[in-house]
Design a protein around this nucleic acid. Structure first.
Length: 430
RNA sequence: GUGGGCGUAGCUCAGCUGGUUAGAGCGCCAGGUUGUGGCCCUGGAGGUCGGGGGUUCAAGUCCCCUCGCUCACCCCA
């Protein structure tokens, strides 16, 4: 029925995450927060929608994201708003609005929206965690940022990934390189795929990452940006490389790594999982954007950051069979045969003591309640029937082997000592 | 936006060349055990066969349209 229902479905390209699946999200985000907060990044919350100009100017009119994938709508007062398609522009806007002291190091977790056809690993609403560091132009910061992303993947257990690295140059050296590309491409116009012939003038860099064989062939021997960097960019790139080498972080130089946002300068990088079978295997990416703050109307302020796709990281985890969670969400299950009031009181006491306690409702049979207890994954069941109630005791039953040591499967415990008893048993188990 | 694949129970799927009340496994509920889960046995609930139209004596099965899901291209997380 679910898939056939004509209405009331999650919109195309969006997904519900129910528990226990959602538990992985919680833990993933928590791990990320712990990791980056240890490096001085603070949680930054910005609205999911912004004046569309924020993204137009931030990401760039030339990008696909702005050109054809943005969720835009006209607000009641006539201003054009847009749902955030990525994280960086919003952070930069917030930075400009509040002018915090430099360096400004922010982390975020957010939904991101792009109107594109969904496929494996691509959604209209997906979620990212990420960091942005504004202020220093120091390549040491690039290294820190890349290092944190790498450490995150390592921490969740992802091993089958590749880090690609490139440099896009800056305002001084890139224009000349772009013009060089343009000149060569004009001469080979006929060899390029149709879609990219028109891009030669607008943005020849984008032709580089075309995956069609004909474009690949036609651009195979094109000069690399890395060989046309100015002195400063060259030094920056070399510094980043040696820093990564020093940390033992393996990477490959990818001359075609251009990335789709217009704001990148100098360092760009991307993490791709080769465990993911699907076409969309980029699990994280980012780079330096030294001109972005200025382009958005602020003072010249360098910046660097990355975004990591939560869904794709989870796909990679699935593919590598790592970051799997034990499903149990319950420590103790209260079985009540007196109508429910004993369960209410006992559950309350145990929960206040810090335990995860579930009970059943609707006055079901003992068999049914114990079945629920079993399925809940609880270590212990508290059985309270008329007998226990009258004698002011609780039958504590071990639902899993070893839950109560060698003492047996079941024990009668005075009602007044139940919390203490449970705490002792569960704590002893670790 | 473009193209391919697929829509039968909550889930995974059978259903041959159209033929009587549409099935299985798992899951769920109940009973077997008038206070004891997991294993086993028995029973039960649950389906406008995505929707609409057409062909036919007869359509889950054939044709058309439509909606949805999915994968891929483009691009990205």
């Amino acid at each position: 029925m679910t898939d056939r229902s004509p209405s009331l479905r999650a919109p195309r390209g969006t997904h519900d995450v129910l528990w226990p699946q959602s538990a992985r999200w919680e833990r993933l985000v928590a791990r990320f927060a712990t990791l980056v907060e240890r490096a001085g990044y603070g949680l930054t919350l910005t609205p999911v929608f912004e004046d569309a100009t924020v993204f137009r100017r931030g990401i760039g009119e030339g990008s696909d994201v702005v050109g054809k994938e943005m969720y835009e709508f006209v607000d009641r007062d006539g201003t054009t708003l847009a749902l955030r398609p990525e994280g960086t522009a919003s952070i930069v806007r917030a930075f400009l609005q509040h002018r915090p002291v430099l360096p400004f190091k922010a982390w975020y977790v957010t939904a991101a929206f792009r109107h594109e056809r969904p496929q494996a690993g691509r959604y209209r609403q997906h979620h990212q965690v990420g960091i942005e560091a504004l202020g220093p132009a120091d390549p040491e910061l690039d290294i820190e940022v890349i290092g944190l992303a790498q450490q995150f993947f390592e921490e969740v257990g992802i091993r089958a990934y590749r880090l690609s690295l490139n440099s896009m140059g800056d305002q001084r050296c890139r224009p000349a390189y772009v013009e060089l590309l343009r000149t060569i491409m004009r001469a080979r116009r006929g060899e390029l795929c149709e879609e990219h012939r028109d891009r030669i003038e607008a943005n020849p860099l984008r032709v580089l990452d075309c995956k069609r064989p004909q474009c690949q062939a036609a651009t195979a021997d094109l000069p690399h940006m890395v060989d046309h960097l100015c002195g400063d960019c060259r030094a920056h790139f070399d510094h980043v490389r040696s820093g990564l080498d020093d940390l033992g972080i393996r990477y490959v130089i990818d001359h075609r790594l251009v990335r789709g946002f217009d704001y990148y300068t100098r360092t760009t990088f991307e993490f791709a999982s080769h465990a993911i079978e699907a076409a969309q295997n980029g699990i994280g990416g980012g780079g330096r954007y030294d001109g972005l703050v200025e382009a958005m109307g602020g003072p010249p302020t360098p910046g660097v950051g990355f975004g990591i796709g939560i869904e794709r990281v989870l796909l990679a985890c699935d593919a590598e069979k790592v970051f799997e969670l034990d499903a149990a969400m319950v420590d103790v299950f209260v079985v009540d045969l007196t109508g429910g009031s004993e369960a209410r009181r006992l559950a309350g006491e145990l929960r206040r003591a810090g335990w995860r306690v579930e009970r059943s409702f609707d006055d079901r049979s003992m068999k049914a309640q114990l079945r629920s207890a079993d399925r809940s994954g609880a270590q212990l069941a508290m059985i309270v029937g008329p007998t226990e109630r009258d004698h002011k005791v609780v039958t504590v039953r071990a639902m899993r082997d070893g839950a109560m040591g060698e003492g047996g499967r079941q024990e009668t415990v005075p009602r007044a000592e139940v919390v203490e008893f449970v705490t002792e048993v569960l704590t002893r188990r670790g």
